[in-house]
């Protein structure tokens, strides 16, 4: 029997998230000749998104439109995905390790008593076995994990780690709508309050500018936001900065916050405690700006500037403006 891998797409603000395209690439890494079936859930026309998934390497797409899928709920999505799984009998299921992926995959794994590997960053083959690498202890160590006994390959992948396939608009494939019966939901969403300043999620951003205690105030973060805007990046923070209420805890990077792997990480006024390093030390290029030349952050930074951040940041903003 040949492999069939279901990739559950995820939409934010009407657009598919990059991690959904990365999940298609992951499916191909799991099994090069698998049929990759994209699944799009929502309420309304999903054909554009289905097409985008096919352009990024899916062989065909299923859409499920239902009023109970308008907003994400674990119950709505869970029922829809499980019904499609029952129909399609895939040999693998891949999703992004996002707020939604983290929420719905363990529900499905719990119901169907499946093994599930969360937050994979690398996929390799060892004979017939698919081996997933995932960070543990927030990136202080890594483990390689397999699904035992030829079970369904069920995995979520961390955004920004597995390269998506090149978009090919000449690709075509079957798109079919599927009716799914979704029972009443027990959770009722009243409202969603947008707090993010822009559309770029920190875990998916290529560039992250993070501030620490050295930034000294909420006001002090302004230059970080300015730089992030210029570079199309996101702003993050150390625990110290969050504890001091310079910014929201949702921005926290580190062992009790987010673990991120951007191409460029600029640490501004961050000393580099071991808990913080766990959250960002796998970034490809690290820049540290700190007035304390003995700060631990310099031990892992590719480039460092020892200096007053309030002097350095405006200059850096200007320099980037000129570059553009």
């Amino acid at each position: 029997m040949s492999d069939k891998i279901l990739v559950v797409g995820e939409v934010a603000d009407g657009e598919l998230r990059n991690v959904s395209f990365e999940a298609i690439a992951a499916a191909k890494e799991i099994s090069a000749d698998a049929e990759v079936v994209a699944l799009l859930l929502g309420d309304g026309d999903l054909n554009g998104q289905a097409e985008a998934m096919i352009h990024h390497g899916a062989d065909r797409a299923l859409t499920v439109s239902h009023e109970n899928l308008k907003e994400y709920t674990s119950e709505g999505y869970g029922q829809a995905v499980m019904e499609v799984m029952e129909d399609e009998e895939p040999t693998g299921v891949v999703m992004g390790h996002t707020s939604i992926g983290k929420d719905v995959t363990p529900k499905i794994a719990g119901r169907l008593e499946l093994g599930l590997i969360s937050d994979a960053i690398e996929i390799e083959k060892d004979g017939d076995q698919v081996v997933f690498t995932r960070p543990i202890y927030s990136g202080k160590a890594f483990e390689k994990k397999v699904i035992k006994d030829d079970g369904l390959i069920f995995v979520t992948i961390r955004p920004n780690n597995i390269a998506m396939l090149e978009k090919d608009e000449s690709r075509s494939g079957d798109i079919s709508a599927k009716e799914v019966d979704i029972k009443d939901l027990r959770t009722v969403i009243k409202e969603i309050i947008r707090k993010k300043t822009d559309g770029i999620d920190m875990s998916e951003a290529n560039i992250v500018i993070a501030g620490g205690r050295g930034v000294k105030s909420e006001e002090g973060f302004k230059s970080l936001y300015e730089l992030a805007d210029l570079l199309g990046g996101a702003v993050g923070a150390s625990r110290g900065a969050c504890d001091a209420e310079y910014c929201d805890y949702s921005l926290q990077i580190g062992q009790t916050g987010k673990v991120i792997t951007p191409d460029l990480y600029i640490a501004v006024g961050i000393s580099g405690a071991i808990q913080h390093l766990a959250g960002m030390s796998s970034s490809k290029v690290i820049v540290a700006i700190n007035s304390d030349e003995d700060a631990n952050i310099f031990n892992i930074a590719d480039y460092g500037i020892v200096g007053d951040l309030f002097e350095v940041m405006p200059l850096l903003v200007e320099e980037i403006k000129q570059l553009q």
Binding site: G139, F142, K144, D149, G304, V306
Partner: peptide, 25 residues
């Protein structure tokens, strides 16, 4: 268990890079 850990390893140690010198600008 439905899954098995087959290896555990530490990330490669990150080398300290360059601290720049001279006038801040």
């Amino acid at each position: 268990a439905k899954t098995e850990t087959v290896d555990i390893f530490l990330p490669p140690e990150k080398q300290a890079g360059r601290v720049l010198e001279g006038d801040v600008a």
